[in-house]
Design a protein around this nucleic acid. Structure first.
Lengths: 221, 221
DNA sequence: TTATAAATTACGGGAAACCGTAAAACGGAG
DNA sequence: CTCCGTTTTACGGTTTCCCGTAATTTATAA
């Protein structure tokens, strides 16, 4: 079992609860912080002191407040932490439920477990800690089903750019200009029209408005 | 101070944390549930047994799962509870940060306090409980500023209907048909065009797509 | 009831978006 | 370099949307 753990979670109530979970697992040597910057600082120090944390439990979204922070969210934190100590295990404990985002955490950030804040999250977190301490990965239950369904359409960077511009009020006919200014290669109006109608066809939508809300819900834009 | 309290919160971790807060306030007689239906049941029973709960601490959004529930969220719960026992005090403890929604809780549901899940939420919850036990209302700090800014445009039910239909893929020119079928009075195409352009003018938007994402973020649709 | 104001709807010209087709540019393989 | 296939762009007709004006209906008060 882990001997030295760090909790990074801005919500005080959740932070308290995670502390209690560690207590239930008889892990006494842990620290907790409310800001990503503090988390990175503690981990850096622990590595230098040759007493590294073995596990980081962190949230993804951290709210901004009066204290100016370098690291804006858990993803940035994980990347910096992994650079300092690639051996540290990471559990993300978050309310995020959009499959693409969670998938990205495993794929891009190389996290060891994802526990979603939900009905049995305390028990699930406990289980995740136990599983990882044995050297395994832990994928949250509700994710397994989520991952397989979608994939109706793979959004390219161009697609996302187009949708973002539309949602910012740029006229379709003016999008080519924006793309050229930013040196994005396919920039013809026809291409944009084609992409949009293709996306709608794949997802069986009829209007851009539908596409926008769909991507909003999925966290694509 | 309150002597008998009920916690309704589906997230186990948050539920645990609220329990701990009550413990810190030396409130020993409390119960906790993970479903709205259970909460209403307990409160109804306590009233019949002439030992009513004095305070309900509840979340707003409850996730659906295998257990079929009558009450889908905290708002429905509060309404039912108030019908059974109008004297009970209510604290909403939620991550909701959209001012219109929070405002509605005070105005329509007559809640006594709103504590947002955030950095110092445990301390804030503690304070709210203390304040209310003295017979006062408690408005979360971060709300006060939020309430005054917006109000750039007051969305009518018609507005919301139009935006909802658009986001579902209904063509603008077909909206009059939908409105007539549901006996919604202004149903002319011109009126719809006018509402849309008026909304966009007020909010300084140029496209429907912008309007949609804006309303999504505000929780209007 | 009638006069007046407000809201709703009808209409029409112009802009933007949609959609199919064809032309042009690009990218290997031989 | 040429050929071939793919991607990108250009173009034109049609639909939908936008927006101003005018007509109509509804509401309100004298």
């Amino acid at each position: 079992m882990f001997e030295k753990v760090l909790i990074a979670e801005d919500h005080e109530s959740t932070n308290i609860s995670v502390q209690k979970t560690l207590g239930d697992l008889a892990i006494t040597q842990y620290d907790y912080v409310y800001y990503c910057d503090d988390a990175l600082l503690r981990i850096s120090k622990s590595v230098l002191a040759q007493q590294p944390y073995q596990l980081l439990i962190t949230d993804i979204s951290f709210e901004e407040d009066h204290r100016e922070q370098k690291l804006k969210n858990g993803i940035e934190l994980i990347m910096k932490v992994k650079a300092v100590d690639p051996t540290i295990k990471v559990i993300v404990f978050s309310a995020e439920d959009r499959p693409n985002i969670i998938e990205g955490l495993f794929k891009d950030q190389g996290i060891d477990a994802y526990v979603r804040k939900a009905r049995h999250d305390a028990k699930e977190l406990k289980l995740a800690i136990e599983t990882i301490s044995k050297g395994k990965k832990h994928l949250a239950n509700q994710l397994r089903q989520g991952v397989k369904e979608k994939n109706l359409h793979e959004f390219t960077t161009l697609d996302i750019t187009i949708l973002t511009l539309l949602s910012q009020g740029v006229l379709q006919k003016d999008i080519p200009l924006y793309l050229q200014k930013n040196n994005i290669k396919p920039s013809g109006l026809s291409t944009i029209e084609k992409r949009l109608s293709h996306m709608k066809e794949m997802l069986e939508f009829s209007k851009n408005e539908q596409l926008i809300v769909f991507c909003k819900d999925l966290g694509i834009i």
